[in-house]
Amino acid sequence: MILDATVITQTLAAATPVLLVATGAVFGERVGVINIGLEGLMVFGALTAVVVSVATGSPFLALLAAAGAGVLGAAVFAAFAIWLKRDQVIVGTTINFLAFGLTGVWYRAYLNGFGAGKTATELPDLIGQGAGGVDALTLLAFALVPAAHYLLFRTRLGLTIRATGEVPEAASAAGTQVNRLRALVTLFVGGLCGLGGAALSIGIANSFTEGITGGRGFVALAVVVFGRWNPVGAMGAALLFAAADVLQFTLQARNVWAGLPYPVFLAVPYVLTLVALAVRGAKGKSPAALGTAFEQG
């Protein structure tokens, strides 16, 4: 018996971090910004959430702080990639280094300081309890999907975002401050990345570990491609990834194919993501101005 209610709620929980980040990244890429540093922004959020949760005992304050940390990290990205017009892939990579390094320093200081021996207060479940519970962040992540879809396709702001990622000159001629819009969206995406990190550290678990994100920021980018730069499509892809994740975990836990060492299972989501990209890759058409700097005339 592999499919039961617990598996479903676990899948939703596992999808939450990827979905939050991917929903943001849909906007980021639609406006023309590719940010490899989402992974790092998640790490920032994850640690911030734990530290604030331990310090205040309030998981909701922790969420707020995590989003703030993501925004702060994204500001560094925006400064270099949008303001100084450096290559977005390289700036994103740099953000990852910065995040891994700074959280490493901070985490050690925290463990040796007031965090010693404490666990963070987890996000409470709003529906159900324990393994079958669904917390506020999961609800938020899924509630965001229709909202994001509406924003992107049924508002002037969404229209402007889509135009900016395709023909920034046209958006500019229509009165859009292209680089300002890109920076604002980047900050917004950063906030969602922070929440995505918090979903891992105080949503699914109650602690921070180094490498906690396990490439989920990168997977989120793949999810955006697979979901055709569309919030609903991204949700489907994120659920697929999460299902693979939960499935491999469940198979391990129930000793199915006990002869196989566990790394085989751990590799499944990444391999699946690669296969998905390969299948969808040739058909996907990214925003035309993705990753290019815009020179305001």
């Binding site: 229209l159 395709e166 023909v167």
Partner: peptide, 16 residues
């Protein structure tokens, strides 16, 4: 032309 080819005519008009 400063038109966005992936948007419909109506969307292009709304944009500007």
């Amino acid at each position: 032309f400063l038109l966005v080819p992936t948007l419909s005519v109506a969307e292009n008009l709304l944009l500007t």
